Simulated scan of single mutants.
Amino acid sequence: MHRTHSTQPALVFIHGFLDGAQIWEDVTRHLGHRAAGALCIDLPGMGARADEPGPFSLDRFAADVTTQVRALSLPVVLVGHSMGAQIAELVAQRLVQQVRGLVLMTPVPLRGAGLPNEAMSAFHAIGGNPAAQRELRRNVSVNLDDARLERLGQLGDRVAASAVGIFADLWNAGHPSGAEPSRYRGPVLIVRGDGDSFVNFAMISSGVMPRFKAPSIASIERAGHWPHIEQPAAVARVVESFLANIEHAPNGAQLQDTPVASQGWTRAFEQKSADAFADAFALNVVLEASVLAKPAIGIEQVKAVMTTASKIYEALSFTHEAHNGLRDYLEWEVQAFGGERMRGVTVLTKNAAGKIVHVAIHHRPLGGALKFSAELGRRLQGKVDASLFYPGA
């Protein structure tokens, strides 16, 4: 194993239900040198350790990972997918001083998914049934071609049929500590696939986000439950951005107060819904932006622009916030147009009732802002006054 630079935490990847360490290969390839020395773990009973016997529990998995991470004797960032996100949080609670950040990818809440028995029967039925396992995976993905689906399927085929239902019940029932706010108070990034019908936004917003002090959120376009397989380049970019924020903290301090808290504005971007934006706005809201030639005025016009803008983004991460009276200042990073990155600052002014009355959005660089404006105009043609937008080249 190659050691990372002394100021950089090592990456530790924890897979989910029926998967294995090799599912991270595409993401680590896109991360390049930043993934040098990464630890990709196979959990007992899965992956290369599929022959290991039970009994199995979330605590056993967490203890196993904790032992491996402690042996690194390095600061780490834990990346956990689905059930692996539950395990990552348990490890972070055990190794608080060693863990610099937590990335929860399409995370099952630590308290469990709480699915009823009839829903769980489908997960129990895939044990020893390769065709059913692949069909279930396809149903909760968006961009799995046959080759990638088969890669995942072969991992699931290794798992003992008798263990499949046990593993499913573990993530569904969750862990007792999931009933309380997380004891891990460091920086957290939640990554979701915008087409994930299993760990959907409702599950994340009710069962995951409230557990943490101020999690950042990134949504991956054209991805379902396996964004690291379906869109590995996009996932690598949001992870890299999260790492950069951690590594730029003075003296290696944890950024406990910098990620953006859940609020109406960020939730609206997650849901990409006109109704969600409407809930955040006052009727007389005004939007000024570097992507607009003149202000958009009134709730109908503003929510149309913002809802459409949210759907252009392939990934969005709110990275920092500040507050001054009735004003909120949000820094963000986005990807659009096949991975093109833009950054900016949004200033939200609220009235006494907490509704947003003025929005000022500053994109950079200029080229990206102009391209974004032209795309907004194209998508809103006939719906919003065309003079708001810069014409395309």
Score class of each variant (00 low, 15 high):
Ser73Ala: 10
His15Arg: 02
Ala268Ser: 13
Met342Arg: 13
Pro210Glu: 12
Pro109Asn: 10
Gly195Ile: 11
Ala132Arg: 11
Arg148Tyr: 09
Gly114Ile: 08
Glu288Trp: 10
Phe269His: 13
Val69Met: 03
Ile190His: 00
Ala38Phe: 04
Arg211Lys: 10
Asp328Ala: 14
Lys383Asn: 09
Ser82Cys: 11
Arg138Asp: 08
Gly195His: 13
Leu144Cys: 05
Ala160Gly: 07
Pro295Gln: 02
Lys272Pro: 00
Lys355Trp: 01
Val191Leu: 11
Ala360Gln: 15
Thr266Arg: 06
Ile190Asn: 01
Ala296Cys: 10
His33Ser: 14
Met342Pro: 00
Ala21Cys: 07
Gly252His: 06
Pro75Gly: 03
Ile312Gln: 09
Pro227Arg: 11
Ala393Gly: 14
His323Trp: 03
Trp171His: 12
Ala62Trp: 04
Val345Tyr: 14
Val79Arg: 11
Arg237Ile: 04
Pro250Met: 03
Arg100Pro: 02
Gly156Asn: 00
Ser206Thr: 10
Trp332Cys: 07
Asp169Cys: 00
Asn251Lys: 14
His363Leu: 08
Phe277Ser: 04
Met46Thr: 07
Gly368Met: 08
Val260His: 10
Phe242Ile: 04
Leu95His: 13
Gly153Arg: 02
Arg192Lys: 05
Ala125Arg: 13
Arg151Trp: 04
Arg237Glu: 12
Phe318Tyr: 15
Ser241Ala: 15
Ser141Thr: 05
Ala214Tyr: 03
Glu300Leu: 15
Lys355Val: 03
Asn284Leu: 05
Tyr390Pro: 03
Pro295Gly: 06
Glu240Gln: 12
Thr28Gln: 04
Thr7Val: 11
Gly354Gln: 08
Pro176Gly: 04
Gln97Gly: 06
Ile356Trp: 04
Ala274Val: 01
Ala168Trp: 02
Leu18Asn: 10
Leu58Thr: 09
Gln8Lys: 03
Ile14His: 11
His5Ile: 07
Val103Pro: 00
Ser373Pro: 06
Arg222Val: 06
Gly368Ser: 14
Pro75Cys: 04
Ala386Thr: 08
Leu95Phe: 09
Tyr184Arg: 07
Gln263Cys: 15
Glu150Tyr: 08
Val302Thr: 15
Val235Cys: 15
Ser57Val: 09
Arg100Gly: 14
Asp279Gly: 06
Ala147Phe: 06
Gln231Val: 06
Asp42Lys: 05
Lys383Glu: 10
Glu52Thr: 12
Val76His: 10
Met105Cys: 11
Ala160Glu: 13
Ile87Trp: 03
Arg94Ala: 08
Ile229Pro: 00
Ala374Lys: 05
Gln271Pro: 00
Cys40Leu: 07
Leu149Val: 07
Gln68Tyr: 07
Ala282Asn: 01
Asp19Ala: 15
Leu11Asp: 05
Thr346Leu: 09
Arg237Asn: 09
Arg49Gln: 13
Gly367Met: 05
Asp385Phe: 13
Ala223Leu: 06
Ser206Pro: 01
Arg49Cys: 08
Gln8His: 10
Leu31Met: 14
Gly101Arg: 01
Ala21Ile: 06
Leu43Glu: 09
Glu25His: 15
Ala353Asn: 10
Asn139Ser: 15
Leu104Cys: 04
Gly47Thr: 05
Asn129Leu: 05
Ser177Tyr: 12
Pro55Lys: 06
Leu102Val: 14
Val99Met: 02
